[in-house]
């Protein structure tokens, strides 16, 4: 007998739901690493950079907390042969990366290292 449906099974030999889930996991890891490098600015720029780091970590955390939901949605999509694209997740990640980059540029240009 197969194991209990936790997580549900999908019968896709390409393991697309698993690979997509792991891709999200790597992305959160990259985001935390990027935030960790911002830590070097903390003694120079204080709360401004602190907010930046907090924003990146919160984004990574939010992605991780919704991973299971996305994984199950993908499995369901494979089962049904019909899946709507994840527009909210992709937009949220892209927007947070853009915000981080803009604030990073602002820091380099307008907040001198002391």
């Amino acid at each position: 007998m197969p194991l209990q449906n936790n997580p549900p099974t999908h019968g896709d030999p390409g393991l697309q739901p698993e690979r997509t889930d792991l891709a999200w996991g790597r992305t959160t890891l990259s985001m935390v690493v990027a935030a960790a490098i911002f830590l070097r600015w903390l003694p120079h720029h204080g709360w401004f950079v602190g907010t930046l780091i907090a924003a990146a970590v919160v984004t990574a955390l939010a992605i991780n907390l919704t991973r299971k939901r996305r994984f199950h949605r993908a499995i369901h999509g494979i089962q049904q042969e019909n899946m709507a694209p994840n527009i909210a997740s992709t937009a949220a990640v892209a927007v947070s990366v853009v915000i981080l980059a803009v604030l990073g540029i602002f820091t380099v240009l307008f907040l001198p290292l002391t």
Binding site: Q16, S30, M83
Partner: peptide
């Protein structure tokens, strides 16, 4: 749905490049 998921993974690879 496999194409939708593949597109999502490619997007995430670009995002990691950006990060």
């Amino acid at each position: 749905p496999r194409f939708t998921l593949a597109n999502e993974r490619t997007f995430l690879a670009w995002i990691r490049t950006s990060l």
